[in-house]
Design a protein around this nucleic acid. Structure first.
Lengths: 210, 210
DNA sequence: GTCTATAGAAGGATAGAC
DNA sequence: GTCTATCCTTCTATAGAC
């Protein structure tokens, strides 16, 4: 027969994205073949090209959708937060950890596979990544200006916070000694320390951001 | 002629490692072909197999050598440090940043290409990576026990510090507004804050490490 | 909507000349 | 020590049957 019994274009498209996400995260974009993806989806390799023009677009769309959802989710969260910069920062920390642990594959791809994007696609994703980091930067600047924070350096603090938070997904397995809530509290504790330490050596703090 | 004029086995072996390191860091292990490496070295693809049994070994040896040098360098550094845990921690921060910025390619490979190692090779590298992280863990435990630090959580503090320090190599270009010395001071400032913040929420601090 | 079949390029690795 | 030539596999992507 020509058509698989019970075949469904919408469903196959969804499964293609899911399979590609899973495989790219596990083995890396360059190491995964379209045949592998097709096997995971349960169709032949040729059929994939009904749903994506090529492999590169598959990668780009995974990243692009992820960044859009990340930005959108944070904006929705922030809209409901009243309070000073510390309150916003705490919200950001919780949000970032929780969002990233729920999307381990997408986040992993989004920052491991940047070099496998074409230059054009890279520029698009990079802009969104910078926009997200800028949202943290805004909070840090606000808190530094108001005296709520004492940053060592505004820009490097945002880099450091993003790096340490994103690092959670490199070791979190969900079955360890710590619950998600505990992890959030611990990282919150560390971030509070990190933004409260600016001292005599912090010449330039608050300057030079972005 | 059969042999390239001025050809030299020792030199070619060195250049092979250098070229592989450069290319793997830039494009990723899976995306780089032996022919590409050969071109970079200036020989034909077949000649590479005089110096490495296969591509996998090339990757493994880059990582393995890097980890050995990292561990060896840190042990040499630590031997010359007298002082409390804070002094050791400051030394570690400076050491880690400086070492990693001088070996951008190797560090990038060592943590981006772990999944392209065979299971056997992965286990070997992972053990050395854990050993290195354990060295920071020892310092944190010492400082927490002596009361010099007030950690939010011993294990997660070490993860966070490693993540933020290693993150430097993702943005450092060497031509920015900050000198290497300034970067070290800023990260030192942030790390001091991070290890000095343990408060009421740090139940379990100092427990459960490794 | 999915299949089989295949084109055309590129991959890792080896053999044997020089 | 390096080259050329090549084996064999695998890849992305397309064509056309059903």
């Amino acid at each position: 027969m020509a058509r698989k019994s019970g075949s469904d274009g919408k469903k196959t498209a969804r499964e293609l994205r899911a399979a590609a996400t899973r495989l790219f995260a596990k083995f890396g974009y360059a190491a995964v073949s379209m045949r592998q993806i097709a096997t995971e989806v349960g169709v032949q390799a040729g059929a994939l090209y009904l749903y994506t023009p090529d492999k590169q677009t598959l990668l780009f769309q995974i990243m692009d959708r992820h960044m859009d959802e990340l930005l959108e989710a944070w904006r929705a969260e922030l809209a409901g937060v009243a309070g000073d910069a510390m309150a916003k920062l705490e919200h950001f920390v919780r949000f970032h950890i929780r969002f990233h642990l729920n999307r381990g594959d997408e986040i992993f791809i989004s920052y491991m596979e940047l070099r496998n994007l074409t230059p054009e696609n890279f520029a698009l994703i990079e802009a969104k990544r910078r926009a997200y980091e800028g949202l943290l930067g805004d909070i840090l600047q606000e808190g530094n200006a108001s005296g709520r924070f004492a940053l060592c350096d505004t820009k490097l603090s945002s880099y450091a916070i993003i790096a340490m938070l994103t690092g959670v997904s490199t070791w979190y397995k969900g079955d360890g000694r710590l619950s998600l809530d505990q992890i959030e509290e611990i990282y919150l504790c560390m971030v509070r320390g990190l933004v409260s330490q600016g001292g005599p050596i912090s010449a330039g703090a608050g300057k030079g951001f972005m």
